[in-house]
């Protein structure tokens, strides 16, 4: 029992070491590839996303609000979405290439190592460029919080960090869930593209503005749980006691989505193993 526990701790330590190693490699690779323009690019990302804030804010400012959310609330929601998008996609970039990996046998390189291919793929292409999203998202979020003047107690702060974590886990599940389709179809780009790009817009506004079928869609592809539900308590939109639970529900949904991906991936890999690319 003790030995098993020790082995487990060893694996965990090994995994974190691996993450640290590849994080440093991805960072140095990014810098070596882009040099100074990496910094310019990072600033560019911030400026570009700032445009979205300007649009959202000036659009809503002229109205009393959108489904009970003021312009500042929506900026807070958008920031939450941005942060979770960045954190939840740090490890998923290699899966954007899944079509190519399956069709041209790039996956084989992961299958000839004594480590699970999923683990290897998660750490292969860590997105260090998302630091821009985080800076902008966190900055705007805290600014909005200051402007709106809602006092936060310890519970708020704790739930704030937990919500970010939960939203990121959900986001990771969303980005990954359709990728194993490549094992059957050869190409999953049209579906993953729609999930990643087409539905992402639903992060900007409260989900109640959408008609029922879209709401249903973003419960299944759980975008609703990334920013909207966790923010209900933080923004004081839902004052009932159950609002405290929303971030935890998000976390459960996120874990479920990632688990579903894992099961789906295993099935796909089995198919790959028996049929080849």
């Amino acid at each position: 029992m003790l030995r098993k526990c020790k082995m487990f701790c060893h694996r965990i330590a090994w995994f974190f070491q691996l993450c640290g190693m590849t994080l440093s490699m991805c960072w140095r690779g990014y810098i070596s590839h882009k040099g100074w323009s990496a910094l310019v690019h990072g600033i560019g990302l911030i400026v570009g996303y700032l445009g979205d804030y300007v649009v959202l804010y000036s659009m809503i400012m002229n109205f009393p609000g959108i489904a009970g959310f003021t312009a500042l609330d929506v900026c807070f929601l958008y920031s939450m979405g941005l942060i979770c998008y960045a954190l939840g996609n740090i490890h998923t970039r290699e899966f954007w290439k899944i079509d190519d990996l399956v069709l041209r046998g790039g996956l084989d390189l992961y299958l000839v190592r004594p480590v699970s291919p999923l683990v290897q793929m998660f750490v292969r292409d860590i997105q260090v460029g998302y630091i821009s999203h985080l800076i902008l998202g966190l900055g705007c979020m805290l600014m909005v919080k200051g402007m709106s003047g809602i006092p936060w107690d310890l519970t708020h702060w704790a739930l704030f960090f937990f919500s970010i974590l939960a939203g990121s886990v959900v986001m990771s599940g969303i980005s990954l869930i359709a990728t194993p389709l490549s094992f059957w179809w050869g190409k999953s780009r049209s579906v993953t593209g729609f999930i990643r790009g087409g539905l992402r817009g639903t992060l900007h506004y409260p989900v109640t503005i959408y008609p029922k079928f879209i709401q249903l869609l973003i419960y299944i592809i759980p975008y609703a749980f990334v920013a909207y539900y966790p923010c209900l308590y933080l923004l004081g939109k839902d004052t009932s006691p159950k609002a405290v639970l929303y971030p935890f529900i998000s976390m459960l949904v996120g874990i479920a989505a990632n688990f579903a991906f894992w099961v789906f991936w295993r099935l796909g890999l089995k198919k790959y193993n028996s049929a080849g690319g």
Binding site: G65, G193, F194, G201, I209, Y210, P211, I214
Partner: peptide, 21 residues
């Protein structure tokens, strides 16, 4: 589908905004 969807999402937002006034 992507484009139509994007448009619908945005129209929902305008509808909700005008609904508030």
């Amino acid at each position: 589908i992507f484009s139509v969807f994007r448009l619908v999402l945005q129209l929902c937002a305008w509808y909700a905004l005008y609904h508030s006034v």
